[in-house]
Design a protein around this nucleic acid. Structure first.
Lengths: 371, 371
DNA sequence: CAAGTCTCTCAAAGCGCTTTGGACGAAAGA
DNA sequence: TCTTTCGTCCAAAGCGCTTTGAGAGACTTG
């Protein structure tokens, strides 16, 4: 029975508007059952198109918003995703984490999803994951900072909870859902550019050696060198947290080497910051005396184009990654269209002023040294 | 009727352990009503001490954890706190935000509280707050990045939702709950130290001018100068986002001034990063040619003691602030002991190597210039 | 000794939603 | 014409917790 809204109803409507309507009131207002209204809202097929329109219209007018707690209880879905945030003292990932989170949040808020943020010592992440899942109030988990043969992957599989990995482990089958950038290719291409510019001795300021991304980046560098018959000198490699200070000291060490590298690869613009500082201090000119390519996570606080000499970078937005991961995670939870399980993004190689031809060894202009 | 646990019960117990016990099962196991068990767990007085002990023991053995969604529904409390994260493109607060969030999360996870993180353009924060509150699934809100006469305070008051402000506005009554550090005092004391060291011309690399903290820091500087009969030259002040790049360019500008300042106050170690770079580039020695004091939020990625010349700082941990705010917010929601509504923390002035006596004007050693 | 007080416990009524298992006509097939 | 099948809709049973209102004993009190 369909009835036009009378004066009484409008009064109810106004009250409802003030004090948050619930499903019952809404259905009474419409002269429908809660079932039908609920179905209309959740896109079930067994409801008349016209009825659905009426419902949607009433929702707009009353400002009805389903109570998330009730939904969660009824569906058994927690409506929130877990986040393990590695934050030991001195742990350098905060900058990157904040940016990533912004992306996650952007997407999550659109679906009314919440976060359970669990800070944890990096060495304790496994236990934290377990605890988080056991708590029962997340229905998906996100993990990052993958290491070689990372035990968390197996753990999460065994816990049978939807999860997505940012990055990829190494040395275990990659049959889990991930989003990663092609670090190998990125650093391979960057190296190739440097080699094309005549650089023969290239150094690497990398992240901590136990992280998969760091391993891959080094591999990319080595592969590209090998293609030109060159080898990576281990003295030209530094693994360290990606802070300004490590960038500075690392670069300084490189410059003190008997055979000084002519080009540097940096795993982060934060590292590059320190590296450039060391370069300036040594009186070397970026882009001519020394070339540098950094990986750019697109941190708003540190733009490569704003460096005194704009930096050539391999770019991939951390924030977009966060947003994408949230989208996939939520789709997974809601059983919507199945998005691809595994994604490998390509970083863009953007050339700016920090790269240039290798300086010619004095007195031997334009000739390659023999042997 | 109190019954010892029989074989059947232990079987039930084992099953329960595997598949998450609920209150009903737990109460059956104990031969008590759900009411009593619930009360025992929530610390109500009308339950026998011995009974409570029995309940607690069973909880330990079964690993019972109340279903948060059900609790939320029954109590009407959302069990989560809202976070408006300002993240416009180029907005520089990420570093600080991440660190702060770690503190928040630390405390929140202890009480099973969730977050609703709502990224928002800084200029749109008011609307975002409104939307967040209206969504009905937060029961407290946290806001930061206070501006002069910030309209959000009045807004939140009118929305009658518990909230805490990180920082304090200026120009409106401070009768709302906040946690702030005494920025005026911090920069006053820092300035005083510099003046005692003989510095007469002091510059300020500050955060954006519309932020209350920036206004207060400038005020502190001016007050301390005034006490010694000195004035702040507006040419020696820069308001800008707190990025490395702005630190660099700002310092460069200062150094180009006809009357160059002998000391610099920095609102962030990130600014100091760029400032120090400019100093090095100009061939000036930090701590002797120029003194510098930075405010240190205790970011793990950027420690003042690790700078090539360790930085004198005014220190106050952002992370502790986050943790404290979460604690107060949660106490507020749960109506626990009433923690103080307003807190003003004092920043510590920690002297390291970046401060030293003012360089003597050439040819007039140890004498003050007349007039 | 009846009446009042405590102390401890319980049954049952929600909280606001989803979802199961029909019900009731109307259209379609036998 | 009588069954089937749809297409729409509904009543009611949860989801797992908190909380109200009361009851059964045990203990005081007048």
């Amino acid at each position: 029975m369909r009835v036009a809204l009378g004066r009484e109803d409008f009064k109810a409507l106004r009250i409802a508007k003030a004090s948050n309507v619930n499903l019952k009131q809404l259905s009474q207002l419409l002269g429908l059952s809660q079932t039908t209204v609920s179905r209309a809202l959740n896109g079930y097929p067994e409801v008349n198109a016209e009825t659905r329109e009426r419902v949607l219209d009433a929702v707009r007018r009353t400002g009805y918003r389903p109570n998330r707690a009730a939904q969660r209880l009824a569906t058994g879905r927690a409506g929130s995703i877990g986040l393990v945030m590695p934050t030991a003292h001195g742990y350098p990932s905060d900058v990157h984490f904040g940016e990533f989170l912004a992306g996650l949040g952007d997407e999550a808020v659109r679906h009314d999803f919440h976060f359970v943020i669990n800070p944890s010592h990096p060495d304790d992440e496994e236990a934290t994951c377990k605890r988080l899942v056991a708590s029962g109030n997340i229905d998906a988990l996100f993990i990052a900072y993958m290491r070689e043969k990372d035990p968390r992957v197996a753990l999460l599989k065994s816990l049978s909870i939807p999860f997505i990995v940012h990055g990829r482990s190494i040395g275990i089958p990659t049959d889990y859902p991930y989003l990663d950038i092609d670090n190998t290719a990125a650093f391979h291409d960057a190296t190739k550019l440097l080699v094309q510019l005549g650089h023969r001795r290239i150094a690497l300021l990398n992240g901590p050696a136990h992280f998969a991304f760091a391993i891959r980046r080094k591999k990319g560098l080595e592969a590209a060198l090998a293609e030109s018959g060159l080898r990576l000198d281990e003295a030209c490699v530094q693994h360290s947290p990606m802070t300004d200070e490590h960038g500075f000291s690392g670069m300084k060490r490189f410059l003190d080497l008997p055979e000084r590298p002519t080009a540097i690869l940096c795993s982060s613009t934060v590292l590059a910051l320190g590296a450039v500082r060391a370069l300036n201090q040594a009186g070397l000119k970026l882009g001519s005396d020394v070339s540098l390519i950094a990986h750019d996570d697109v941190l708003p606080m540190l733009k490569p184009e704003n460096f005194s000499v704009p930096l050539t970078t391999t770019r991939s937005s951390l924030r977009s990654a966060g947003s994408r991961i949230a989208k996939r995670l939520i789709a997974r939870i809601l059983n919507l269209e199945t998005l691809p399980e595994q994604e490998l993004w390509t970083a863009e190689l953007i050339v700016r002023a920090s790269t240039g031809p290798a300086p010619q060894p004095a007195g031997r202009a334009n000739r390659r040294s023999p042997g």
